[in-house]
Simulated scan of single mutants.
Amino acid sequence: MKYCRPRLQFTGGWLLAILTAITATPVIAETANFGTFNLSANFNPAQGIVQGFTGGSYSLSAISNRDRDQKACIGFADPNPDHIMVLEKDFSHLTIQVNSGGSDTTLTIQGPDQTTIRCGDDTGKNKDASVSDRNWKSGTYRIWVGTFNPGVKRDYTLTVEQQ
């Protein structure tokens, strides 16, 4: 008995459609290294405090070279965001600050539209990063806490405050 292997015939139309859909779909990390937190109107300050640690060799400038105010986006972190912040309403002003005990940290925050980027580096004389900005629209924000040099591990606390 001769074995016959079934022959698959592909018509170009549907195969092309599948390949186009796969390659056109943006890859966005929906999981964060240290979880997701939600903030609603008049949130309790404790809800805006999360912890993590830096590390990684992914250049945050690959997300964007400059933010919406033309500040440089610098530092190194893991390719996945460290935190996902979900704003359940619009906020007129928020401040996001890193406290690593004075290490040289950076912040990159990608807004819900994927194009609004906010970046922060030193805060005054402190080497820890912060971002204080207006017009935070409701939605999902991806937050990376980086270091000035790649691969540096530092524990930190990230604090979000409404103004």
Results as ranks from 00 to 15, higher is better:
Asp69Val: 10
Gly75Phe: 09
Arg66Tyr: 15
Thr123Tyr: 00
Asp155Gly: 03
Ser138Trp: 01
Thr25Cys: 11
Gly139His: 09
Asn33Gly: 00
Val98Met: 05
Thr115Gly: 04
Thr140Trp: 02
Asp69Leu: 15
Ala21Trp: 03
Thr108His: 12
Phe148Tyr: 15
Leu39Gln: 01
Ser40Cys: 03
Ser103Met: 08
Gly124Pro: 07
Leu158Gly: 05
Phe148Ile: 15
Thr105Leu: 01
Ile63His: 13
Glu30Asp: 13
Thr95Trp: 07
Gln162Lys: 15
Gly56Gln: 05
Cys119Lys: 00
Pro45Ile: 11
Leu19Val: 13
Gln162Asp: 08
Gly139Thr: 11
Leu107Phe: 05
Ala24Leu: 14
Leu19Ala: 12
Ile84Tyr: 07
Trp144Asp: 06
Tyr3Ala: 12
Arg68Phe: 09
Lys153Asp: 12
Thr140Arg: 02
Tyr141Gly: 08
Lys71Ser: 12
Ala72Gly: 04
Asn33Lys: 13
His83Leu: 12
Ile117His: 01
Tyr141Ile: 09
Leu19Phe: 13
Asn135Thr: 09
Lys125Tyr: 09
Arg66Ser: 11
Arg118Asn: 12
Val86Ala: 08
Trp144His: 13
Val160Ala: 07
Thr31Trp: 05
Asn38Trp: 07
Thr108Met: 11
Trp144Phe: 06
Ile28Val: 15
Trp136Val: 10
Arg66Met: 08
Lys127Ala: 15
Ile28Ala: 07
Ser64Asn: 12
Ser100Glu: 14
Gly35Cys: 03
Leu107Met: 06
Arg134Phe: 15
Arg5Gln: 12
Leu16Ser: 14
Phe91Thr: 02
Thr140Met: 05
Asp67Gln: 04
Ser130Glu: 02
Tyr3Arg: 11
Val160Tyr: 02
Pro26Glu: 04
Ser92Trp: 08
Asn42Ile: 03
